[in-house]
Nucleic acid binder design. Structure first.
Lengths: 217, 217
DNA sequence: TTATTTCGTTCGAACGTCCGTTCGGCTCTC
DNA sequence: GAGAGCCGAACGGACGTTCGAACGAAATAA
């Protein structure tokens, strides 16, 4: 992956490519393999998931797998990069036109929970395998994670500034408290859970808002 | 581990043993190895941690390691079992004489955060490797985890009953929200963090209490 | 007392398996 | 026939686990 630029490698499938038919097929196969790998990672964990299992899940041969991804690590990296990018760009889109700090926080949580409910395997792997990458791949994934964290932190900060609580509140602790709740979702929530995602999102929002302000939304 | 009873295997070192000197030494060596394994698990993750690395960390040979633990899985299981047992019994002790629901919740969070700050490696592994056990070992670890969860859930329930919030609140979502915050601690807090554990515990308590009631402690 | 046996403890060396990765060659399409 | 796509087969290494032998101290027998 060192031979290609990040913006060529990790974006969602491009609208066009140099060699149209072949290019489309290549990207589609690549996405299909990545999707299969994601579910294998989610089921077995990154270390225990073998390239042979991923190949079977993607319905390609072991050697064929290496035609699309140079290394096992690249599978995890590209997936994490795409997911964090999507989370961040989705959030930025949803935030357009939302000005009240409380509404922005509400939007952030709703955006995250919605994305989670629609991409459970991806977010499980992203929450659980944060330290499975090494070196440059870790740094790049970390960078975009921090951008997501930073944006959330700013939203929380403006909520607090507008309506400070009557007890000492550290901004970092508050932010990590929210991410803890959100990133723990994959441990207990699934599509067959009685509580629908919208209700979960709204309760987390209510709890967190009341928690950092002292009253509900 | 199938040839011994759980209460023989997994309790903390017994006060006496049949063969005093030798028994003491055996238990001490066992504890020492378990301690080393815990830190290796915390650093590399269960799957990536090798028995060879654990043996080096414990300063025994690879084969010598197997004199104290039959399988790699047993290392993880005994550790998890002891930690969850300690968490549960600690909490029960701390709760003795505490009657107000709010004080009981405050006690639970303080107890958990204090234990976490003093046993970071253990709780990191317990939070991160919940699904690394299989079969009977998984079931046994799960059972005691659920006891800890159940006790916490009851505490939260009585807080809510005494002082219901003005928005719909699902008890399970609320409980998991708290455990998410607590179990995510290992991702960002460490002994050199500027915020001391007592402050973290008190802020989590304040946030969570205000979150489920609408006002602070 | 000494000689012998037992047993808990330790370890070097190996076994079989699975892993990530590579290589050479096959089959299509252009 | 050039090149992409694809694959069977293998390579080297790391893994969890086992085996047989050694050691020392305690227990037993002489």
């Amino acid at each position: 992956m060192d031979s290609q630029r990040a913006d060529q490698l990790f974006e969602s499938p491009p609208a066009e490519s140099v060699s149209p038919a072949a290019g489309d097929t290549f990207e589609a196969r690549r996405d299909h393999i990545l999707q299969a790998a994601t579910h294998v990672f989610a089921q077995y964990g990154y270390e225990k998931a073998s390239m042979r299992t991923i190949a079977k899940a993607a319905d390609v041969s072991l050697a064929g797998l290496y035609h699309y991804f140079e290394r096992k690590e690249q599978l995890l990296f590209v997936m994490q990069f795409r997911v964090f990018s999507s989370l961040l760009s989705n959030l930025r889109e949803w935030l357009v036109g939302v000005e009240s700090p409380r509404d922005r926080l509400c939007t952030m949580i709703r955006s995250h929970v919605t994305y989670f409910a629609e991409h459970m395997a991806e977010l499980k792997v992203c929450s659980h395998e944060l330290d499975s990458l090494r070196g440059e791949t870790y740094d790049q994934a970390r960078e975009i994670r921090l951008a997501y964290y930073g944006l959330t932190r700013e939203i929380i900060a403006s909520v607090i500034e507008l309506d400070p609580p009557d007890y000492p509140l550290d901004l970092h602790v508050a932010t990590m408290s929210l991410f803890g709740t959100l990133n723990w979702l994959y441990r207990w929530w699934n599509p067959s859970h009685p509580t629908p995602p919208k209700v979960v999102a709204s309760q987390i929002t209510n709890q967190f808002l009341a928690g950092i302000c002292g009253h509900t939304a």
